[in-house]
Amino acid sequence: MSTSARVPQRLSHLPFRGSRAVSGGLLTWTMLRGPTWVRLLPDVYVHRDGLRADDHRMWCDAVALRLPPGAALAGRSAAWLLGVDLLARGDRVTVLLPTGARLRPHPRLSIVRSPLPGADRRWFAGLPVTTPLRTAFDLGRQGARAEALVAVDALLRRQVVKLPALRAYAADRPGWPGSRLLREVLALAEPLSESPMETRLRLLLLDAGLGPLTAQHEVRGGGRFLARVDLAWPALRIAVEYDGDQHRERARFRRDVARLNALRSAGWIVLRFTADDVLRRPEATVALVRQAIAERRTPAPPR
């Protein structure tokens, strides 16, 4: 009989508690120590064919089996489960432990200790997760300012939370750690921002004193729709666009050319930037935008 034929169906793909499998007569400790099973965490195993080392969901499933009562998956892990991917490759599973709860540290875990009322915790996709509001509240007051804003913008964009509700939730918790950062993030938050890099570009321009500016502005000419631009100063007819890798596709490139020509014909200045411009050449990026604004604000000489 082959090894795969001896694998209980309920244990063939998902992580499981080894002690429960043994007490239920499905496996023995000797079998668990063999090559068929991979130990993920203390007393948590997965079949070797179900091992996906970079699969965050697999690690969330494994970690959830070890959570003490009242704990929850939180932060970027909760956002990912809610459909908002803020993860970097190899990110650890974030766990929120309420006061008094204990969990053994592990390289795959990022443990945060904080009060966790029952109202801030729910079951989602079979796992205990912080609620959308608590997830946004936590991400908006942690880490670097730009990353906190990227996280909140992404949650707003996917309509996981609404900005008025998040502001009200934060106002009810004024003394929590990171509240000052969160207030700043909520003042800058933009539900219309369509990507993390667009958020970073917008923040770069605002920090340079080039605001206010409009996100996802619709440009019309001759009574018809011409384009929607990422960021704009409508009164000056200046648009700033973030170009990701998708703009290199041939069909997309052709549409972009036609769209750019239509905007130019309507009298718009369009400045396009890449990730390198935002992350590695921020001063040059700001200088180009500042120059365009200055040119538009300078009266044309009389003819």
Results as ranks from 00 to 15, higher is better:
residue 22 V to A: 15
residue 161 V to G: 05
residue 263 L to W: 08
residue 155 L to H: 09
residue 277 D to P: 06
residue 264 R to Q: 11
residue 301 P to D: 03
residue 126 G to A: 00
residue 73 L to K: 05
residue 73 L to V: 02
residue 162 K to I: 09
residue 136 A to G: 01
residue 129 V to I: 09
residue 286 V to K: 12
residue 120 D to E: 12
residue 38 V to C: 12
residue 151 A to P: 00
residue 19 S to Q: 15
residue 1 M to L: 10
residue 136 A to S: 05
residue 114 S to D: 03
residue 262 A to D: 11
residue 142 Q to N: 10
residue 291 Q to Y: 13
residue 128 P to S: 03
residue 302 P to D: 14
residue 15 P to N: 04
residue 76 R to E: 11
residue 216 Q to Y: 10
residue 35 P to D: 08
residue 117 P to V: 04
residue 253 F to T: 09
residue 131 T to G: 04
residue 185 V to W: 11
residue 127 L to I: 06
residue 233 W to K: 06
residue 22 V to S: 14
residue 45 Y to R: 07
residue 237 R to K: 14
residue 273 F to W: 06
residue 97 L to R: 01
residue 14 L to C: 08
residue 287 A to M: 11
residue 287 A to V: 07
residue 292 A to R: 07
residue 23 S to I: 13
residue 35 P to Q: 05
residue 101 A to P: 01
residue 158 R to M: 08
residue 251 A to C: 10
residue 215 A to M: 06
residue 198 E to H: 04
residue 102 R to D: 09
residue 274 T to H: 07
residue 71 A to N: 04
residue 46 V to L: 04
residue 265 S to I: 04
residue 198 E to R: 01
residue 225 F to T: 10
residue 58 M to Y: 06
residue 167 R to A: 04
residue 222 G to E: 04
residue 105 P to D: 07
residue 97 L to E: 00
residue 206 L to P: 08
residue 47 H to E: 01
residue 198 E to L: 01
residue 276 D to F: 15
residue 190 E to D: 15
residue 269 I to D: 15
residue 184 E to T: 12
residue 179 S to I: 11
residue 235 A to P: 05
residue 168 A to M: 08
residue 247 H to G: 05
residue 253 F to C: 09
residue 188 L to H: 12
residue 194 E to L: 10
residue 179 S to D: 08
residue 210 L to S: 14
residue 169 Y to Q: 02
residue 226 L to G: 02
residue 68 P to K: 06
residue 15 P to Y: 11
residue 173 R to H: 11
residue 216 Q to V: 08
residue 290 R to F: 13
residue 132 P to G: 02
residue 289 V to R: 04
residue 85 D to N: 07
residue 123 W to C: 15
residue 246 Q to G: 09
residue 294 A to Y: 13
residue 78 A to R: 02
residue 17 R to L: 15
residue 99 T to S: 08
residue 202 R to F: 09
residue 19 S to E: 15
residue 80 W to I: 00
residue 283 E to C: 11
residue 101 A to V: 04
residue 70 G to C: 03
residue 190 E to A: 12
residue 16 F to Y: 07
residue 114 S to N: 05
residue 221 G to W: 14
residue 291 Q to C: 13
residue 101 A to R: 11
residue 261 N to Q: 12
residue 198 E to S: 04
residue 215 A to P: 12
residue 172 D to Y: 13
residue 184 E to F: 09
residue 70 G to N: 05
residue 62 A to T: 00
residue 234 P to G: 07
residue 114 S to M: 04
residue 201 L to Q: 10
residue 194 E to Q: 13
residue 72 A to R: 01
residue 135 T to P: 02
residue 221 G to P: 01
residue 154 A to I: 03
residue 259 R to T: 12
residue 267 G to P: 02
residue 42 P to Y: 13
residue 146 A to L: 08
residue 233 W to E: 02
residue 288 L to I: 03
residue 163 L to F: 07
residue 183 R to A: 13
residue 23 S to V: 14
residue 77 S to D: 00
residue 277 D to E: 09
residue 126 G to H: 01
residue 230 D to C: 05
residue 109 L to T: 06
residue 174 P to W: 08
residue 105 P to A: 10
residue 247 H to M: 07
residue 179 S to W: 14
residue 199 T to C: 03
residue 110 S to I: 03
residue 32 L to K: 13
residue 200 R to H: 08
residue 77 S to P: 00
residue 174 P to V: 00
